[in-house]
């Protein structure tokens, strides 16, 4: 199984179907290049309580995860190439939760990705 920090992760993700993304050991949000959710994997859904049916078709950073809608995360996707990991805090229902994020896109990729590793500890 591929791991969160694998340098080939973007290429691997691009070859997975939306259903296959459910099997990844970390949270995966697949978005169109304008930020609309295309796939919202089960591991993310189990924790947030947001169902894939609710998330798909919505703008991720304004409608699903406004806690990451700032210049350090959401605005980074304006770059044509992005591969950045950072420590962050997301809110699940109302509880703050420390996570590791990875932000991924490239000029060749069909989608952009927001990845969440909630098992990460510093």
């Amino acid at each position: 199984m591929i791991h969160f920090s694998d340098p080939r992760l973007l290429d691997w993700l691009e070859h997975q179907t939306n259903q296959q993304l459910d099997e990844t050991p970390f949270g995966v949000v697949r978005m169109s290049l304008d930020g609309v959710v295309v796939a919202y994997c089960k591991s993310e859904s189990h924790i947030t309580g947001i169902t894939p049916d609710y998330a798909v078709g919505k703008y991720y950073f304004t409608q699903i995860a406004p806690c990451a809608n700032n210049f350090l995360v959401a605005a980074k996707y304006a770059q044509p190439q992005l591969d950045e990991e950072l420590d962050y805090v997301l809110t699940y229902v109302s509880a703050p939760t420390k996570v590791r994020l990875r932000l991924l896109k490239s000029p060749e990729s069909k989608y952009q990705y927001f990845l969440v590793d909630r098992h990460w500890t510093k």
């Binding site: 995860a65 406004p66 806690c67 990451a68 809608n69 700032n70 210049f71 350090l72 995360v73 962050y88 805090v89 997301l90 809110t91 109302s94 509880a95 703050p96």
Partner: peptide
């Protein structure tokens, strides 16, 4: 922090 809403984290985290 015990409870927090998304807008707060949007402002705090940077």
């Amino acid at each position: 922090i015990v409870q927090v809403n998304p807008h707060a984290l949007q402002l705090i985290m940077p």
